[in-house]
Each structure stands twice: as C-alpha cells, then as structure tokens.
C-alpha cells in the first residue's frame, strides 16, 4: 500500500480534481516530473501535455494546458487554465483547432502569433493524444 498525499487540480472555471493520490506526473519544461508523498516544497512549471494521476493503484490521464504546480508539505496544488478528462474532449473540435493553428503557423505573420499558434497546436495535439490512448484501452 503506497502512501498517499492530497492533490488539488484547479482551473478558473472549475475544481477539476481533489483527493488523495499515490502519485502524480506532469510534463514540465524539461520532461516528465513525478511527485510522490514527502516531496520537498517546490514550484514547477507545467507544460501543455498529459496529466497522469495514480489513485487506488489505477492511473488516470487528462489533457492539461500550461500552468504550474506547487508542492507543499500538506498538499500539492496544480493550477492551469484548462484540464480535461478524455471523455470531455471533443475530437472534432481539437482536430479543427489543430488544422487552424497549422494554417496560421504557415502564414508566419509575427513572432507573437507564431508562438500562439504553436501553443494552440500543442494543446490540440495533447487533447488528441489523450483521447486516442483512452479509446484504445
């Protein structure tokens, strides 16, 4: 029985997740970052990608937008603009967003827009990835 810690995942529009978990893995700027009970206090960037939560011995995955994670002695908090379970992801919408972003990136207007479309592309791909994996399982 692995020891547990308290995790909260919060977005501006809802409380996505709250409860005791055994482990959580996020993408940080330089690869995956896993947290288990007793981690030293830390603030870390969360990159667009997959959020993995292990609860009661089972892994669940969600698509997560850019944000950050605060690891504290009492609990871990992840704040992000949006987090979605696979069943909440609209494949058609993500696909359309991906194509739109690719089209925008091709036009190469300004650096700012380039970064924006790259971020939009990453978000869409993260959603599609999570959705795809979930459907195979």
């Amino acid at each position: 029985m692995a020891s547990e810690f308290y995790l909260e995942v919060i977005t501006p529009e809802r409380t996505f997740f709250r409860g005791n978990v055994e482990m959580v893995i996020v993408n940080s700027s330089d690869g995956e970052l896993g947290i288990i009970k007793g981690h030293v206090p830390m603030v870390a960037l969360v990159a667009i990608g997959t959020l993995k939560i292990k609860q009661n011995g089972k892994w669940r995955e969600a698509a997560i937008n850019e944000g950050f994670m605060e690891v504290r002695p009492d609990k871990t908090i992840i704040l992000s603009h949006s987090v979605e379970w696979p069943e909440e992801i609209d494949v058609k919408r993500a696909q359309a967003a991906l194509e739109r972003a690719q089209e925008r990136a091709r036009q190469r207007r300004s650096m700012k827009e380039y970064y924006q479309s790259k971020a939009a592309m990453a978000r869409a791909m993260a959603r599609l990835k999570v959705k795809k994996r979930y459907n195979i399982d």
Partner: peptide, 25 residues
C-alpha cells in the same frame, strides 16, 4: 496561508522561468 512551514521553495526548472509564467497567470 493554509499552513505555516519554514523552508525555502525549490524552483523547477529555474526561479526566472517559473515566475515568468506564474505572474502572468
């Protein structure tokens, strides 16, 4: 604050990178 503790926080990957993102958010 929910909890009081005395320890310095670790920044991953670096304080600047974290604050660059954190403050706009």
């Amino acid at each position: 604050l929910d909890v009081e503790y005395r320890a310095d926080i670790l920044y991953h990957p670096s304080p600047k990178a974290v604050l660059d993102l954190l403050i706009p958010k």
